[in-house]
Amino acid sequence: MKWFVLAAFLAIIGSLGSALYFMMRDTGQDGRPKTSNMARALAFRVGFSILLFVCILVAWKLGYIHPTGIPLK
């Protein structure tokens, strides 16, 4: 589970980095920026984030992970 979460975080950061790259470098022949690549990268980032949240929620419900917060007295 730790490796899955780490891979998901790396995918989220990588997608955010590629969106930054497309925002800074991707211009069309007329000099105007093409936003489709940047929007696609940001959409993947949102998708990865939602998938990670759902997977963590399901793992908690199935008992694969347990909360380790401050114990209640």
Rank of each mutant, 00 (worst) to 15 (best):
V5R: 13
K34E: 12
I56K: 12
S15H: 01
A11T: 02
F53Y: 10
G14D: 01
L57K: 13
C55F: 04
C55N: 06
H66N: 13
A8M: 14
N37E: 03
K73C: 08
I12F: 05
G69C: 07
F9A: 05
R40Q: 13
L20E: 10
V5I: 08
A19K: 07
W3A: 15
A43L: 06
F22Y: 11
A11E: 00
M1T: 01
Y21H: 03
L51A: 03
K34W: 04
P71F: 04
A59L: 06
P33L: 03
I13Q: 09
C55V: 04
A59F: 07
R40I: 01
P33W: 03
D30S: 15
S18P: 00
V5W: 06
F53A: 14
I13S: 10
T27I: 04
H66L: 05
L52V: 02
V54L: 13
G63W: 00
A19L: 00
F4M: 08
P67A: 11
G31R: 05
L62D: 06
F48V: 03
F44A: 11
V5D: 07
G47V: 01
I50C: 05
F9Q: 14
P71K: 15
A59P: 07
R32E: 11
L72N: 14
F4Y: 13
F4A: 11
I65L: 09
H66P: 07
V58K: 13
G63I: 04
H66G: 03
M24D: 08
S49F: 04
R40H: 12
P71A: 10
L6G: 08
L10M: 05
F9C: 12
Y64R: 09
R40Y: 11
G63D: 00
L72D: 14
L42S: 02
D26N: 04
D30L: 06
K34G: 09
L6M: 12
V58E: 11
I70V: 14
A8N: 10
K73D: 15
R45Q: 13
I70T: 12
T68Q: 14
M1H: 10
D30W: 08
W3H: 14
I50W: 03
S15V: 01
N37M: 04
P33I: 00
L42I: 02
L51G: 02
I56A: 12
A39M: 08
P71M: 10
L62E: 08
L62M: 11
R40G: 11
K61Y: 09
M1N: 07
T35P: 08
G14S: 06
D26E: 06
A19E: 01
G63E: 02
K61T: 00
V58L: 13
V46S: 15
R45A: 15
I56H: 11
G14R: 04
L6K: 10
L10N: 03
K61D: 05
F48C: 00
P33T: 00
Y64W: 15
F48K: 01
G14T: 01
G69L: 09
A7M: 03
Y64P: 06
